[in-house]
Design a protein around this nucleic acid. Sequence first.
DNA 1: TTGAAAGCGTTACCAA
DNA 2: TTGGTAACGCTTTCAA
Lengths: 349, 349
Amino acid sequence: MLSKTTADAPAALTLNDVAQRAGVSPMTVSNVINGKAGVRAATRQRVLDAISETGYRVNPMARTLAGGRNRILSVLTPQMNQPYASEVVQGAANAAQRLGYELIVMRSGGSNFSVMTQLAAGVLLIQPPPLPHRGDQDLRTDRLPPVVSVDGPSDHPFMVDNYGGACLAVQHLVGLGHTRIGFISGLEAEPGVAAEGAGASSGQRNDAHERFRGYRESLASAGLPVLTEYVQHGDFTKESGERAAQHLLRLPRPPTALFVSGDAMALGAIHLAQDLGLHVPDDLSVVGFDDLPIAAAARPALTTVRQPLQEMGDRAIELLVELVEHRAVVCPAPFPTTLIQRDSTAACR
Amino acid sequence: MLSKTTADAPAALTLNDVAQRAGVSPMTVSNVINGKAGVRAATRQRVLDAISETGYRVNPMARTLAGGRNRILSVLTPQMNQPYASEVVQGAANAAQRLGYELIVMRSGGSNFSVMTQLAAGVLLIQPPPLPHRGDQDLRTDRLPPVVSVDGPSDHPFMVDNYGGACLAVQHLVGLGHTRIGFISGLEAEPGVAAEGAGASSGQRNDAHERFRGYRESLASAGLPVLTEYVQHGDFTKESGERAAQHLLRLPRPPTALFVSGDAMALGAIHLAQDLGLHVPDDLSVVGFDDLPIAAAARPALTTVRQPLQEMGDRAIELLVELVEHRAVVCPAPFPTTLIQRDSTAACR
DNA sequence: TTGAAAGCGTTACCAA
DNA sequence: TTGGTAACGCTTTCAA
């Protein structure tokens, strides 16, 4: 029913067919479609009728090739099945629909950056890898459409206030009376987290540093010590959260609270604590970061620092459209985070 | 750094540029790129060198417009942030990469079906809505590329053995000694679930019926009664699972085990049981369906019927490529399900 | 083995 | 207000 091979297909419906049917020239049809001024109302109507009668749709490829704007935006993301990216994409898809653009999503890697570049009027990058391969860069950057990125470097980066978010989390824990607060960062085996001023080139590394700074400074301004043995690193997976928590909770004087730089890792930490016979939040409080859908669905529901991911995706597309349509743009300020209090944190006993 | 507007862009690199550089005609470059036989080795090498020196990439739009094959496949899915679709897409992306195709994903709805149609050499539909709007169908189905669908109708549908999966789940529960087994289906407020032979037009409804049939027949062959009050319906959300479980567990003689037609609903059921003071699995056993990532990540880890979603996505793309390349194809048999035993089921006490 | 011509469906530009 | 012409970058077809 739906499937039909190109072999036996009737010729595609073109601008010419519509023009013929409306008794005008192809150019007039084009002008009507593109909302150009200077078409008599009657003519316009005749064309419109012919379009709806035939069910004609413009061919975006031909349109692009001919130099027109194609109303296609693309998203490049390293992993399509990660909740972080999914949320951003969801917001982006909403905005695109609202603004009358089509949104196509591709998994980044390989040669597809150039495909996007030729296909789309604008590109949204989600968590682009720290070092864009030079291989892609030295191929001539001709015809490069506007690029906006969420959680990664570009001329128009969208990011969250990581420092502020970390402060929110730690201050919440401090306010609950905790004095031994551990930190699980998202910077697995990265050297020199404690050391200042490492290169801020990589978006992710920079995020990690900002969150660590928030942790460190919040502790300091509460008069609490910053212990290196209370800082562990993970890679945002649940398993890495378990490993890090295991290390932390086996310390002679283990933390009574954990600030974890990602929801999946936080859930891992909670499960490990439970395996150790600890009750969350009575024996151990845990705060996550991101507020992915799993945070609310978990038991105990996770207290976490919310990144407005859908909103960021939405706003990123809005900016991209401004760029595509050559309007003036302002670089976005970092998005504020909010603390979502749920059931994984309680007063220190 | 990455962003550069079209305005000041150098002219795009074309086949002609490469041809000039290699000292041959554009056609020869085209022939080399497309692996056509009959190009002298030396000439071929000269062209290849020119290509890599310039970093040239074919423009897929132009290629398509000119009637060539474009090695782009597209996926249309109603919700990009649902785990079900994410898993299928992940598998599809792997297969596409392996086979040298680009995969683009779009959220279905609106006019984008026709965009896909013109852009891609083949289309993969994931969970297409039950009734394809006639609006899209009466527009001339010209140039329609091959279509394959996962969990929905098409000439080449990919689905799982829903009946067998349900049998697996119920037999597992029966084997554990349970005699009061409830069922939460994915067919919210759908009339006549108990009634046979409702139209099998909708993929989802059909799935639901098949799973119910597995439940009913497994119960029957175990000599157990099929009680209508033990059957509830949800819409695959966690909340609907909670609602259905609440109804079931408040029955005078509540079930001691639940077979739930989706992992998120199953988790909702477990959480509701816990809220009622029940222990899972000691007081209530729960089996889910799908084996989404959350099933393994939850506590207690969910025993569930696994659909090989990534594999289905992978195989769907393989089939699509066969279709695109005009090879002979066989329609796929339903994929087998497997029972993944985890921690949400135990012997009836 | 190579290349010239024509055309895919659309839009920019400019003349009528 | 309308429409002709050229061009976008590529492939098909066919001739050299």
